[in-house]
Amino acid sequence: MALLEPEFGLLFWMLLVFLLMVGVLAKYAWPVILKSMEARAAFIEQGVAYTQEAIERKERAEEEAKSLVAEAKKRQFELLEEARKAKQEMVAEARQAALDEAQKVLETAKLSVEQMKREAESQLRREVGKLSLEIAEKVIRKDLDSDAAQQEMVEKFLNEMEQAN
């Protein structure tokens, strides 16, 4: 039967055309098409991965920002508290220092008053002695020989008077 007999001419042309097609398409068409398809598939896959990563990163960043804000608030509160404490301390210190200073000034004043009092006392004593001597001299000029003996006597008297006081 003619249908089942291979025909050499047709076989020859078929092989020629088919191999030519394989050659042409394998050189100019398929590599471009397959490469582009693979490149696009890879690009899309990469894009999806990037997007996922970006979403994750954004979420992480948001959480981080939240925690940062919370920490900042805490810190702010702490700082305010500290400042308040420091202020109180400073005020107390200043008050203490002022008190101390005042005390010191008072003491110094007391001391100087005491000293002045003492000086005034000794001066008064000398004055009184001198005056009394002068008075006594005038009273009993002739009774006494020298000034030194007289002075000694007056001193003795004054001491006695002071002890009596």
Binding site: G9, V17, L25
Partner: peptide, 20 residues
């Protein structure tokens, strides 16, 4: 020896051209 471009040969060529 028959290498004629027959109907089927032409059809094969047409297929190739369509494919290209």
């Amino acid at each position: 020896l028959d290498l004629s471009v027959t109907k089927n040969v032409l059809a094969v060529v047409i297929t190739a051209l369509v494919l290209l």
